[in-house]
């Protein structure tokens, strides 16, 4: 079974993020880049499926040169090969453009049975790329998986919902997005790190994939950021001292507070 895992390089979740005042895109220079955490779970799941079913795991990444780090990390975890789409024209791409590029790149890879990816990226948090990708590829879409099993051509997932899970079944080839409940990603071993640099990485520019550069990047985006400002710093909380009759006056104080905020 051949699997493609889409991985995205994002700013470290804990780092302070800034938007570039020039074009209102994320200032990636200012933050430590890491692999999107949810995609690490997708890589892990692909490797586990490979251990059971065999086949190849291809890592697919769309991102600038610096995203090589993320590609290498996925390869050091155990991916067999990688495809990296690098092009200045991609800067500022929205989810629509991203799904187009990923779909075209997947079409260059032979006999793909499954496409795995995190259900959202920690920077954009839109959670729409898996669905768009499935639509563009004309494949079954199974999202928010907390468990994946493959039996012949049948893919079954437990789809995480707010109050439990649904069992969803589809047929390969399929696109499956995963949530962090699915597994515990491995740390790369040193042997994995050493072998990663010898694994093949195919790079493509946008034009190589038959895409008009105008369809992607800031110019091709369906939305644009008109302006932005920093979120105001959180105000410190207000301490109400209990002068002995707190329990009696709690309701009264709460109503007073809510009224002052015009909630009631």
């Amino acid at each position: 079974m051949n699997i493609v895992v889409c991985v995205k390089q994002v700013p470290d979740t804990w780092s302070e993020k800034r938007l570039d005042p020039e074009d209102s895109t994320l200032d990636r220079e200012a933050t430590d880049p890491v692999m999107n955490e949810m995609d690490e779970y997708a890589v892990e799941e692909a490797l586990r499926l490979q251990e059971t079913h065999g086949g190849e795991v291809t890592i697919l990444c769309m991102g600038p040169d610096s995203a090589t780090q993320t590609v290498r990390k996925a390869l050091s975890m155990g991916g067999d090969r990688a495809v990296h789409v690098v092009d200045d024209a991609l800067h500022g791409s929205d989810a629509v453009a991203t799904s187009l590029v990923l779909a075209r790149a997947i079409e260059t890879i032979d006999a793909v049975d499954l496409v795995l990816l995190g259900s959202e990226s920690s920077d954009a948090r839109m959670s729409v790329v898996p669905a768009m990708l499935a639509e563009r590829l004309g494949r079954a879409q199974l999202t928010f998986a907390k468990e994946v099993t493959v039996d012949g051509p049948t893919v079954t997932i437990k789809r995480l919902t707010d109050d439990g899970y649904q069992v969803v079944e589809g047929t390969t080839p399929a696109v499956v997005s995963v949530v962090e409940k699915i597994n515990e990603p491995r740390y790369p071993s040193f042997k994995g790190i050493m072998s990663a640099k010898k694994k093949p990485v195919q790079t493509y520019a946008v034009a190589d994939l038959g895409i008009d550069p105008g369809e992607v990047g800031l110019s091709g985006a369906w939305t644009s950021v008109e302006s932005f400002e920093l979120a105001p710093p959180r105000e410190s909380g207000r301490v109400v001292t209990d002068d002995g009759n707190g329990a009696d006056r709690l309701a009264e104080k709460l109503v007073e507070f809510l009224a002052s905020k015009k909630f009631v």
Partner: peptide
Amino acid sequence: AQMGEMGLFGLPFPEEHGGMGG
């Protein structure tokens, strides 16, 4: 055990002995 899985105990030994080849 997890350090073992990461290969840390085999870091400076050749792969033929189960090491990491570092």
